[in-house]
């Protein structure tokens, strides 16, 4: 599928961020971030601990209101209708006290897309089909995160946000998740992913946003970012040293 076809499919792009700022308890945690995220594929948000990656992601998705600045999707301000076309996978997913299938159906019903066959397919896609009737809260960490991804994908989002979805997971779960991300990305879903895993970013990302101390240090294509980052902080980070 060509990029032009994908762009035509995705009506929420580009994402324009204009001078976004946020302070919590008098501490600036997001500091005048301005950027434009366009083109399909996977965008990785990277940076040292406390750089404001998760909060930035939540601002993009609309879970946290910025103090100033704005986010626009294809020129439109955030709204519930826009958020309904997005999904988010959290680092520690919230699992409903129901079966695996019921978890998936709950999400599907919110968008009026609860089709048993689609749901089964979606579970199979994430290798959870054999656990469909299993109590979801008894799943392993990796299975839970795969279920969270299945829930995020069942509604066929235009944009999928993921907040460190694979930290501390078993390798097979990581592999299943990454394969699925690549697949849906090819099908036209824009993916924005916060990750600490350099290997994962290299494998998946088309471009990288590097945040440090709440501000955007650089936004570059992944190939150039990993080969030759612009900022000093990114250089230090990629070298595996502490960014202070």
């Amino acid at each position: 599928m060509s990029d032009i076809a994908n762009l035509a499919l995705n009506c929420l792009l580009p994402i324009t961020v204009d001078s976004l700022s946020l302070a919590l308890n008098d501490r600036v945690v997001i500091d005048r971030i301005t950027c434009q995220i366009k083109g399909n594929g996977i965008t990785a948000i990277m940076g040292p601990n406390g750089a404001g990656k998760s909060l930035f992601l939540r601002c993009l998705h609309g879970l946290v209101k910025p103090d100033s600045g704005q986010v626009r999707f294809a020129g439109k301000p955030p709204s519930q209708a826009i958020r309904q076309r997005q999904s988010m996978v959290f680092q520690a997913p919230t699992i409903l006290r129901r079966t695996v299938l019921a978890n998936l159906l709950f999400v599907a019903r919110q968008r009026g897309v609860s089709n048993p066959q689609t749901s089964r397919d979606c579970l199979a896609q994430l290798r959870l089909d054999h656990l469909a009737e299993h109590p979801a809260r008894l799943l392993s960490g990796g299975e839970k995160q795969r279920l969270a991804l299945a829930r995020a994908l069942i509604i066929k989002p235009a944009i999928l946000f993921l907040d460190e979805p694979t930290s501390n997971l078993d390798p097979t779960s990581v592999e299943t998740i990454e394969t699925n991300l690549q697949m849906v990305s090819r099908q036209g879903t824009k993916i924005i992913l916060v990750t600490h895993d350099l290997g994962q970013a290299k494998r998946l990302a088309g471009d990288v946003l590097f945040l440090n101390h709440g501000s955007l240090s650089e936004h570059n294509p992944a190939t150039s970012f990993f080969k030759n980052p612009d900022s000093k902080a990114a250089k230090t980070y990629l070298a595996g040293n502490l960014v202070l």
Binding site: H61, L63, T94, F106
Partner: peptide
């Protein structure tokens, strides 16, 4: 406390959230 972010993200209407 546990479900808030997930339901916000999913835009679950208040009444449906209460029932859930």
């Amino acid at each position: 406390e546990g479900y808030k972010d997930f339901f916000d993200s999913l835009v679950v209407p208040k009444l449906a959230a209460l029932v859930a």
